[in-house]
Write a protein that binds this DNA or RNA. Structure first.
Lengths: 227, 227
DNA sequence: TTTTTTACTATTGTATACAATTATACAAAA
DNA sequence: TTTTGTATAATTGTATACAATAGTAAAAAA
Protein backbone atom coordinates (compact mmCIF):
# COMPACT_ATOMS: atom_id res chain seq x y z
CA UNK A 1 0.00 0.00 0.00
CA UNK A 2 1.12 3.44 -0.75
CA UNK A 3 0.85 5.12 2.60
CA UNK A 4 2.66 2.20 4.16
CA UNK A 5 6.25 3.06 3.47
CA UNK A 6 8.17 -0.20 3.08
CA UNK A 7 11.29 1.10 4.79
CA UNK A 8 13.48 0.01 1.87
CA UNK A 9 15.88 -2.53 3.27
CA UNK A 10 19.42 -2.06 2.13
CA UNK A 11 18.74 1.42 0.85
CA UNK A 12 21.95 3.36 0.38
CA UNK A 13 20.29 6.54 1.59
CA UNK A 14 22.75 8.75 3.43
CA UNK A 15 22.77 8.38 7.19
CA UNK A 16 22.21 12.04 7.93
CA UNK A 17 18.64 11.80 6.65
CA UNK A 18 17.68 9.15 9.13
CA UNK A 19 19.51 10.94 11.91
CA UNK A 20 17.71 14.16 11.03
CA UNK A 21 14.31 12.49 11.22
CA UNK A 22 15.14 10.79 14.47
CA UNK A 23 16.40 13.93 16.16
CA UNK A 24 13.54 15.99 14.76
CA UNK A 25 10.91 13.63 16.07
CA UNK A 26 12.69 13.44 19.42
CA UNK A 27 12.48 17.20 19.67
CA UNK A 28 8.91 17.46 18.43
CA UNK A 29 7.75 14.70 20.75
CA UNK A 30 9.32 16.44 23.70
CA UNK A 31 11.96 13.84 24.43
CA UNK A 32 14.50 16.61 24.03
CA UNK A 33 13.15 19.71 25.72
CA UNK A 34 13.83 23.41 25.43
CA UNK A 35 17.24 24.22 26.82
CA UNK A 36 18.63 20.70 26.68
CA UNK A 37 22.11 20.53 25.25
CA UNK A 38 23.01 17.99 22.62
CA UNK A 39 26.48 16.55 22.34
CA UNK A 40 27.68 15.60 18.87
CA UNK A 41 30.01 12.91 20.15
CA UNK A 42 27.42 11.35 22.42
CA UNK A 43 24.78 11.35 19.71
CA UNK A 44 27.23 9.81 17.28
CA UNK A 45 28.15 7.07 19.74
CA UNK A 46 24.52 6.37 20.60
CA UNK A 47 23.72 5.92 16.92
CA UNK A 48 26.91 4.08 16.13
CA UNK A 49 28.12 6.56 13.53
CA UNK A 50 30.71 9.31 13.33
CA UNK A 51 30.17 12.97 14.04
CA UNK A 52 30.01 13.91 10.37
CA UNK A 53 26.47 12.77 9.49
CA UNK A 54 25.29 13.89 12.93
CA UNK A 55 26.56 17.37 12.22
CA UNK A 56 24.88 17.47 8.85
CA UNK A 57 21.59 16.57 10.50
CA UNK A 58 22.12 19.14 13.24
CA UNK A 59 22.88 21.85 10.71
CA UNK A 60 19.57 21.16 9.05
CA UNK A 61 17.78 21.23 12.38
CA UNK A 62 19.53 24.53 13.00
CA UNK A 63 18.10 25.96 9.77
CA UNK A 64 14.68 24.72 10.84
CA UNK A 65 15.13 26.58 14.11
CA UNK A 66 14.70 23.48 16.25
CA UNK A 67 18.23 23.69 17.65
CA UNK A 68 20.78 26.48 17.94
CA UNK A 69 24.52 26.20 17.67
CA UNK A 70 26.52 28.24 20.13
CA UNK A 71 29.99 28.56 18.61
CA UNK A 72 32.57 26.35 20.27
CA UNK A 73 30.19 25.67 23.08
CA UNK A 74 27.38 23.39 22.15
CA UNK A 75 24.07 22.66 20.56
CA UNK A 76 21.00 23.69 22.47
CA UNK A 77 17.46 22.51 21.85
CA UNK A 78 14.85 25.14 21.05
CA UNK A 79 11.90 23.03 19.97
CA UNK A 80 8.44 24.48 19.68
CA UNK A 81 6.56 26.35 22.38
CA UNK A 82 2.82 26.25 22.93
CA UNK A 83 2.70 29.68 21.32
CA UNK A 84 4.48 28.29 18.28
CA UNK A 85 1.88 25.56 17.98
CA UNK A 86 -0.95 28.08 18.19
CA UNK A 87 0.79 30.22 15.59
CA UNK A 88 1.04 27.26 13.26
CA UNK A 89 -2.70 26.70 13.42
CA UNK A 90 -3.26 30.39 12.83
CA UNK A 91 -1.04 30.35 9.77
CA UNK A 92 -2.52 27.12 8.49
CA UNK A 93 -5.97 28.60 8.78
CA UNK A 94 -5.01 31.24 6.26
CA UNK A 95 -3.00 29.29 3.72
CA UNK A 96 -4.39 25.79 3.87
CA UNK A 97 -7.70 26.90 2.41
CA UNK A 98 -5.77 28.42 -0.47
CA UNK A 99 -4.09 25.09 -0.99
CA UNK A 100 -7.39 23.22 -1.13
CA UNK A 101 -8.73 25.71 -3.66
CA UNK A 102 -5.69 25.28 -5.85
CA UNK A 103 -5.85 21.52 -5.48
CA UNK A 104 -9.43 21.60 -6.76
CA UNK A 105 -8.07 23.22 -9.90
CA UNK A 106 -4.94 21.22 -10.45
CA UNK A 107 -5.37 17.78 -8.96
CA UNK A 108 -4.68 14.80 -11.21
CA UNK A 109 -6.82 11.70 -11.45
CA UNK A 110 -4.13 9.69 -9.74
CA UNK A 111 -3.97 12.04 -6.80
CA UNK A 112 -7.73 12.03 -6.62
CA UNK A 113 -7.70 8.25 -6.46
CA UNK A 114 -5.15 8.45 -3.67
CA UNK A 115 -7.37 10.79 -1.70
CA UNK A 116 -10.32 8.50 -2.20
CA UNK A 117 -8.39 5.55 -0.82
CA UNK A 118 -7.30 7.53 2.21
CA UNK A 119 -10.90 8.50 2.90
CA UNK A 120 -12.06 4.92 2.67
CA UNK A 121 -9.30 3.74 4.97
CA UNK A 122 -10.12 6.53 7.38
CA UNK A 123 -13.66 5.32 7.57
CA UNK A 124 -12.40 1.83 8.26
CA UNK A 125 -9.95 2.82 11.00
CA UNK A 126 -12.34 5.32 12.52
CA UNK A 127 -14.74 2.46 13.15
CA UNK A 128 -11.88 0.61 14.81
CA UNK A 129 -10.64 3.56 16.85
CA UNK A 130 -7.14 2.99 15.52
CA UNK A 131 -5.58 6.34 16.34
CA UNK A 132 -2.15 5.46 15.03
CA UNK A 133 -3.41 4.56 11.56
CA UNK A 134 -5.63 7.62 11.56
CA UNK A 135 -2.65 9.83 12.31
CA UNK A 136 -0.79 8.40 9.34
CA UNK A 137 -3.78 8.78 7.09
CA UNK A 138 -4.27 12.35 8.22
CA UNK A 139 -0.72 13.08 7.15
CA UNK A 140 -1.23 11.31 3.82
CA UNK A 141 -4.49 13.13 3.15
CA UNK A 142 -3.15 16.60 3.78
CA UNK A 143 0.19 16.02 2.07
CA UNK A 144 -1.54 14.76 -1.04
CA UNK A 145 -3.51 17.98 -1.18
CA UNK A 146 -0.33 19.96 -0.64
CA UNK A 147 1.23 18.21 -3.59
CA UNK A 148 -1.87 18.59 -5.70
CA UNK A 149 -2.01 22.34 -5.19
CA UNK A 150 0.79 22.71 -7.68
CA UNK A 151 2.97 24.97 -5.58
CA UNK A 152 6.25 23.53 -4.42
CA UNK A 153 6.73 26.22 -1.78
CA UNK A 154 3.23 25.98 -0.38
CA UNK A 155 3.66 22.22 -0.18
CA UNK A 156 7.03 22.47 1.52
CA UNK A 157 5.88 25.05 4.03
CA UNK A 158 2.67 23.30 4.97
CA UNK A 159 4.30 19.90 5.14
CA UNK A 160 6.74 21.25 7.69
CA UNK A 161 3.98 22.89 9.72
CA UNK A 162 1.80 19.82 9.58
CA UNK A 163 4.71 17.75 10.82
CA UNK A 164 5.39 20.23 13.62
CA UNK A 165 1.95 19.74 15.10
CA UNK A 166 2.01 15.96 14.84
CA UNK A 167 2.11 15.51 18.60
CA UNK A 168 -1.03 17.52 19.30
CA UNK A 169 -2.73 16.02 16.27
CA UNK A 170 -2.09 12.56 17.64
CA UNK A 171 -3.72 13.56 20.90
CA UNK A 172 -6.75 14.94 19.09
CA UNK A 173 -7.16 11.88 16.89
CA UNK A 174 -7.00 9.59 19.89
CA UNK A 175 -10.39 11.04 20.75
CA UNK A 176 -13.01 8.94 18.91
CA UNK A 177 -15.25 11.98 18.80
CA UNK A 178 -12.71 14.17 17.04
CA UNK A 179 -11.57 11.28 14.87
CA UNK A 180 -15.09 10.84 13.55
CA UNK A 181 -15.46 14.56 12.89
CA UNK A 182 -12.13 14.57 11.12
CA UNK A 183 -13.22 11.75 8.86
CA UNK A 184 -16.40 13.55 7.91
CA UNK A 185 -14.58 16.81 7.27
CA UNK A 186 -11.94 15.10 5.17
CA UNK A 187 -14.64 13.35 3.19
CA UNK A 188 -16.44 16.60 2.46
CA UNK A 189 -13.18 18.24 1.38
CA UNK A 190 -12.40 15.31 -0.86
CA UNK A 191 -15.78 15.51 -2.52
CA UNK A 192 -15.45 19.24 -3.11
CA UNK A 193 -12.06 18.74 -4.71
CA UNK A 194 -13.35 15.83 -6.73
CA UNK A 195 -16.19 18.00 -8.00
CA UNK A 196 -13.71 20.77 -8.77
CA UNK A 197 -15.61 23.12 -6.52
CA UNK A 198 -12.84 25.52 -5.59
CA UNK A 199 -14.86 27.81 -3.39
CA UNK A 200 -16.34 24.97 -1.39
CA UNK A 201 -13.01 23.18 -1.04
CA UNK A 202 -11.47 26.34 0.37
CA UNK A 203 -14.31 27.02 2.79
CA UNK A 204 -14.43 23.42 4.01
CA UNK A 205 -10.69 23.27 4.53
CA UNK A 206 -10.72 26.51 6.50
CA UNK A 207 -13.54 25.16 8.61
CA UNK A 208 -11.60 21.94 9.11
CA UNK A 209 -8.58 23.81 10.41
CA UNK A 210 -10.82 25.96 12.57
CA UNK A 211 -12.41 22.90 14.12
CA UNK A 212 -9.07 21.22 14.66
CA UNK A 213 -7.79 24.37 16.34
CA UNK A 214 -10.81 24.62 18.59
CA UNK A 215 -10.54 21.00 19.67
CA UNK A 216 -6.81 21.33 20.24
CA UNK A 217 -7.28 24.39 22.43
CA UNK A 218 -10.06 22.75 24.39
CA UNK A 219 -7.79 19.81 25.11
CA UNK A 220 -4.91 22.10 25.92
CA UNK A 221 -7.02 23.93 28.48
CA UNK A 222 -8.12 20.64 30.01
CA UNK A 223 -4.51 19.52 30.23
CA UNK A 224 -3.54 22.77 31.91
CA UNK A 225 -6.22 22.22 34.52
CA UNK A 226 -4.84 18.80 35.38
CA UNK A 227 -1.39 20.19 36.02
CA UNK B 1 47.08 31.41 11.16
CA UNK B 2 46.09 28.26 9.49
CA UNK B 3 43.62 29.41 6.90
CA UNK B 4 44.34 31.43 3.80
CA UNK B 5 41.61 33.91 4.54
CA UNK B 6 42.59 36.09 7.48
CA UNK B 7 39.25 37.91 7.19
CA UNK B 8 37.88 40.22 9.81
CA UNK B 9 39.82 39.75 12.97
CA UNK B 10 37.76 38.44 15.82
CA UNK B 11 34.98 36.99 13.72
CA UNK B 12 34.95 33.42 14.96
CA UNK B 13 31.75 32.69 13.11
CA UNK B 14 31.81 29.27 11.48
CA UNK B 15 32.65 29.25 7.80
CA UNK B 16 29.61 27.31 6.72
CA UNK B 17 27.39 30.30 7.47
CA UNK B 18 29.20 32.53 5.04
CA UNK B 19 29.37 29.77 2.46
CA UNK B 20 25.63 29.21 2.84
CA UNK B 21 24.85 32.86 2.27
CA UNK B 22 27.15 33.08 -0.69
CA UNK B 23 25.75 30.01 -2.39
CA UNK B 24 22.18 30.99 -1.58
CA UNK B 25 22.57 34.43 -3.09
CA UNK B 26 24.31 32.96 -6.12
CA UNK B 27 21.33 30.70 -6.66
CA UNK B 28 18.74 33.39 -5.99
CA UNK B 29 20.49 35.87 -8.24
CA UNK B 30 20.53 33.35 -11.04
CA UNK B 31 24.30 32.90 -11.20
CA UNK B 32 23.68 29.21 -10.64
CA UNK B 33 20.70 28.17 -12.73
CA UNK B 34 18.23 25.33 -12.61
CA UNK B 35 19.93 22.08 -13.52
CA UNK B 36 23.49 23.25 -12.93
CA UNK B 37 25.55 20.77 -10.98
CA UNK B 38 27.67 21.87 -8.08
CA UNK B 39 30.91 20.14 -7.22
CA UNK B 40 31.87 20.06 -3.56
CA UNK B 41 35.58 19.87 -4.27
CA UNK B 42 35.51 22.71 -6.79
CA UNK B 43 33.46 24.93 -4.51
CA UNK B 44 35.80 24.18 -1.64
CA UNK B 45 38.84 25.04 -3.73
CA UNK B 46 37.27 28.22 -5.05
CA UNK B 47 36.58 29.36 -1.52
CA UNK B 48 39.86 28.15 -0.12
CA UNK B 49 38.30 25.83 2.44
CA UNK B 50 37.76 22.11 2.81
CA UNK B 51 34.71 20.15 1.77
CA UNK B 52 33.34 19.94 5.31
CA UNK B 53 31.89 23.43 5.72
CA UNK B 54 30.80 23.40 2.09
CA UNK B 55 28.82 20.25 2.71
CA UNK B 56 27.19 21.73 5.80
CA UNK B 57 26.09 24.71 3.75
CA UNK B 58 24.84 22.49 0.93
CA UNK B 59 22.86 20.36 3.36
CA UNK B 60 21.08 23.48 4.57
CA UNK B 61 20.41 24.58 1.01
CA UNK B 62 19.05 21.09 0.43
CA UNK B 63 16.59 21.51 3.29
CA UNK B 64 15.57 24.85 1.83
CA UNK B 65 14.91 23.11 -1.46
CA UNK B 66 17.35 25.25 -3.41
CA UNK B 67 19.58 22.30 -4.30
CA UNK B 68 19.05 18.56 -4.40
CA UNK B 69 21.57 15.86 -3.56
CA UNK B 70 21.60 12.85 -5.84
CA UNK B 71 23.29 10.09 -3.85
CA UNK B 72 26.86 9.40 -4.93
CA UNK B 73 26.31 11.49 -8.00
CA UNK B 74 26.18 15.16 -7.37
CA UNK B 75 24.44 18.27 -6.22
CA UNK B 76 22.00 19.83 -8.64
CA UNK B 77 20.63 23.35 -8.45
CA UNK B 78 16.88 23.75 -8.26
CA UNK B 79 16.53 27.44 -7.47
CA UNK B 80 13.22 29.20 -7.77
CA UNK B 81 11.02 29.27 -10.85
CA UNK B 82 8.85 32.18 -11.93
CA UNK B 83 5.90 30.21 -10.60
CA UNK B 84 7.64 29.93 -7.24
CA UNK B 85 8.07 33.70 -7.14
CA UNK B 86 4.41 34.25 -7.96
CA UNK B 87 3.45 31.73 -5.29
CA UNK B 88 5.53 33.58 -2.73
CA UNK B 89 3.67 36.81 -3.41
CA UNK B 90 0.39 34.94 -3.18
CA UNK B 91 1.34 33.46 0.18
CA UNK B 92 2.72 36.74 1.46
CA UNK B 93 -0.52 38.44 0.54
CA UNK B 94 -2.34 36.20 2.97
CA UNK B 95 0.04 36.07 5.91
CA UNK B 96 1.88 39.35 5.82
CA UNK B 97 -1.25 41.30 6.69
CA UNK B 98 -1.66 39.07 9.69
CA UNK B 99 1.87 39.94 10.69
CA UNK B 100 1.23 43.65 10.48
CA UNK B 101 -1.90 43.30 12.59
CA UNK B 102 -0.02 41.37 15.23
CA UNK B 103 2.83 43.86 15.13
CA UNK B 104 0.33 46.65 15.84
CA UNK B 105 -0.55 44.79 19.03
CA UNK B 106 2.86 43.70 20.19
CA UNK B 107 5.45 46.12 18.90
CA UNK B 108 7.83 47.63 21.43
CA UNK B 109 8.83 51.28 21.58
CA UNK B 110 12.32 50.36 20.46
CA UNK B 111 11.07 48.52 17.40
CA UNK B 112 8.77 51.42 16.65
CA UNK B 113 11.72 53.78 16.78
CA UNK B 114 13.58 51.48 14.41
CA UNK B 115 10.70 51.57 11.95
CA UNK B 116 10.56 55.34 12.16
CA UNK B 117 14.22 55.63 11.31
CA UNK B 118 13.86 53.30 8.35
CA UNK B 119 10.98 55.39 7.05
CA UNK B 120 12.99 58.58 7.35
CA UNK B 121 15.95 57.03 5.60
CA UNK B 122 13.67 55.72 2.90
CA UNK B 123 12.43 59.22 2.26
CA UNK B 124 16.02 60.41 2.02
CA UNK B 125 17.18 57.70 -0.37
CA UNK B 126 14.01 57.85 -2.42
CA UNK B 127 14.81 61.46 -3.21
CA UNK B 128 18.28 60.32 -4.27
CA UNK B 129 17.10 57.34 -6.31
CA UNK B 130 19.51 55.10 -4.41
CA UNK B 131 18.03 51.71 -5.22
CA UNK B 132 20.63 49.76 -3.34
CA UNK B 133 19.98 51.52 -0.05
CA UNK B 134 16.25 51.31 -0.62
CA UNK B 135 16.53 47.56 -1.06
CA UNK B 136 18.40 47.30 2.20
CA UNK B 137 15.85 49.46 3.98
CA UNK B 138 12.96 47.49 2.53
CA UNK B 139 14.44 44.39 4.08
CA UNK B 140 14.97 46.15 7.41
CA UNK B 141 11.44 47.54 7.44
CA UNK B 142 9.71 44.26 6.77
CA UNK B 143 11.96 42.19 9.00
CA UNK B 144 11.37 44.54 11.90
CA UNK B 145 7.65 44.01 11.51
CA UNK B 146 8.19 40.25 11.30
CA UNK B 147 10.05 40.39 14.58
CA UNK B 148 7.52 42.68 16.17
CA UNK B 149 4.62 40.36 15.35
CA UNK B 150 5.70 38.15 18.20
CA UNK B 151 5.66 34.89 16.30
CA UNK B 152 8.97 33.20 15.75
CA UNK B 153 7.61 30.95 13.02
CA UNK B 154 5.84 33.69 11.15
CA UNK B 155 9.03 35.72 11.29
CA UNK B 156 11.18 32.86 10.08
CA UNK B 157 8.84 31.93 7.26
CA UNK B 158 8.36 35.44 5.98
CA UNK B 159 12.01 36.33 6.30
CA UNK B 160 12.86 33.42 4.05
CA UNK B 161 10.19 34.36 1.52
CA UNK B 162 11.20 38.00 1.56
CA UNK B 163 14.77 36.97 0.90
CA UNK B 164 13.70 34.67 -1.93
CA UNK B 165 12.18 37.53 -3.87
CA UNK B 166 15.08 39.90 -3.32
CA UNK B 167 16.07 39.85 -6.97
CA UNK B 168 12.69 40.93 -8.29
CA UNK B 169 12.32 43.42 -5.45
CA UNK B 170 15.60 45.02 -6.44
CA UNK B 171 14.32 45.39 -9.98
CA UNK B 172 11.10 46.98 -8.75
CA UNK B 173 12.86 49.39 -6.42
CA UNK B 174 15.18 50.51 -9.18
CA UNK B 175 12.10 52.13 -10.66
CA UNK B 176 11.81 55.60 -9.08
CA UNK B 177 8.06 55.41 -9.54
CA UNK B 178 7.68 52.18 -7.59
CA UNK B 179 10.28 53.31 -5.05
CA UNK B 180 8.21 56.40 -4.25
CA UNK B 181 5.03 54.36 -3.94
CA UNK B 182 6.82 51.92 -1.69
CA UNK B 183 7.97 54.71 0.57
CA UNK B 184 4.45 56.08 0.89
CA UNK B 185 2.98 52.66 1.56
CA UNK B 186 5.60 51.88 4.17
CA UNK B 187 4.97 55.20 5.85
CA UNK B 188 1.25 54.56 6.05
CA UNK B 189 1.82 51.10 7.47
CA UNK B 190 4.23 52.52 10.04
CA UNK B 191 1.70 55.11 11.14
CA UNK B 192 -1.04 52.54 11.49
CA UNK B 193 1.21 50.33 13.62
CA UNK B 194 2.34 53.34 15.64
CA UNK B 195 -1.30 54.24 16.29
CA UNK B 196 -2.00 50.61 17.23
CA UNK B 197 -4.64 50.42 14.55
CA UNK B 198 -4.61 46.70 13.89
CA UNK B 199 -7.28 46.65 11.22
CA UNK B 200 -5.72 49.45 9.23
CA UNK B 201 -2.23 48.01 9.52
CA UNK B 202 -3.48 44.72 8.16
CA UNK B 203 -5.38 46.29 5.29
CA UNK B 204 -2.51 48.57 4.33
CA UNK B 205 0.00 45.77 4.39
CA UNK B 206 -2.19 43.59 2.22
CA UNK B 207 -2.59 46.45 -0.19
CA UNK B 208 1.16 46.98 -0.16
CA UNK B 209 1.81 43.37 -1.13
CA UNK B 210 -0.92 43.58 -3.76
CA UNK B 211 0.70 46.65 -5.29
CA UNK B 212 4.14 45.09 -5.20
CA UNK B 213 2.77 41.99 -6.89
CA UNK B 214 1.05 44.00 -9.59
CA UNK B 215 4.17 45.99 -10.34
CA UNK B 216 6.30 42.88 -10.38
CA UNK B 217 4.00 41.15 -12.83
CA UNK B 218 3.84 44.20 -15.05
CA UNK B 219 7.63 44.26 -15.22
CA UNK B 220 7.77 40.54 -15.74
CA UNK B 221 5.43 40.83 -18.71
CA UNK B 222 7.51 43.65 -20.13
CA UNK B 223 10.63 41.56 -19.74
CA UNK B 224 8.98 38.64 -21.49
CA UNK B 225 8.13 40.87 -24.44
CA UNK B 226 11.73 41.87 -24.83
CA UNK B 227 12.88 38.29 -25.08
C1' DT C 1 39.61 35.66 52.09
C1' DT C 2 39.38 37.48 47.54
C1' DT C 3 41.07 38.18 43.08
C1' DT C 4 43.78 37.03 39.24
C1' DT C 5 46.20 34.04 36.52
C1' DT C 6 47.12 29.72 34.48
C1' DA C 7 46.60 25.16 33.08
C1' DC C 8 43.49 21.76 31.73
C1' DT C 9 39.35 19.75 29.85
C1' DA C 10 35.55 19.42 26.92
C1' DT C 11 33.34 20.72 22.77
C1' DT C 12 32.84 22.51 18.42
C1' DG C 13 35.32 23.84 13.83
C1' DT C 14 37.96 22.25 9.97
C1' DA C 15 40.82 19.37 7.17
C1' DT C 16 41.95 15.13 5.31
C1' DA C 17 41.99 10.19 4.46
C1' DC C 18 39.52 6.48 2.95
C1' DA C 19 35.18 3.79 1.52
C1' DA C 20 31.28 3.22 -1.51
C1' DT C 21 29.00 4.15 -5.45
C1' DT C 22 28.03 5.90 -9.90
C1' DA C 23 29.21 7.19 -14.54
C1' DT C 24 32.12 6.67 -18.43
C1' DA C 25 35.18 4.87 -21.73
C1' DC C 26 36.90 1.20 -24.02
C1' DA C 27 37.44 -3.31 -25.47
C1' DA C 28 35.56 -7.70 -26.61
C1' DA C 29 32.02 -10.63 -28.24
C1' DA C 30 27.77 -11.43 -30.77
C1' DT D 1 26.98 -2.47 -35.80
C1' DT D 2 25.28 -3.41 -31.44
C1' DT D 3 25.60 -5.16 -27.07
C1' DT D 4 27.90 -6.49 -23.01
C1' DG D 5 31.46 -6.63 -19.71
C1' DT D 6 35.32 -4.57 -17.36
C1' DA D 7 38.39 -1.27 -15.76
C1' DT D 8 39.04 3.37 -14.58
C1' DA D 9 37.90 7.85 -13.02
C1' DA D 10 35.08 11.02 -10.61
C1' DT D 11 32.09 12.14 -6.90
C1' DT D 12 29.71 11.72 -2.82
C1' DG D 13 29.50 9.30 2.00
C1' DT D 14 31.78 8.55 6.30
C1' DA D 15 35.34 8.36 9.69
C1' DT D 16 39.06 10.29 11.97
C1' DA D 17 42.76 13.47 13.15
C1' DC D 18 43.86 17.81 14.52
C1' DA D 19 42.99 23.01 15.52
C1' DA D 20 40.64 26.58 18.04
C1' DT D 21 37.93 28.13 21.53
C1' DA D 22 35.18 28.44 25.72
C1' DG D 23 34.49 26.90 30.28
C1' DT D 24 36.29 25.22 34.65
C1' DA D 25 39.04 24.42 38.32
C1' DA D 26 43.10 24.91 40.61
C1' DA D 27 46.93 27.55 41.97
C1' DA D 28 49.15 31.77 42.97
C1' DA D 29 49.16 36.49 44.33
C1' DA D 30 47.02 40.31 46.69
Amino acid sequence: MRYDKPDEVGSSRPLHGKIFEKLESSILSGKYKYGDTLNEIKLAEEMGVSRTPVREALRQLELEGLVAYIPNKGVVVRGLSKEDIKDIYEIRLVIEGMTARRAAENITDEELAELKEYIELEEFYTARDDAKQLSRLDTCFHETIYKACGSRLLAKTLKAFHNYVKSVRDISLSSPERARETYLEHKAIYEAIRDRDRELAEILMEQHIRNATAFMEKQSLAADKVE
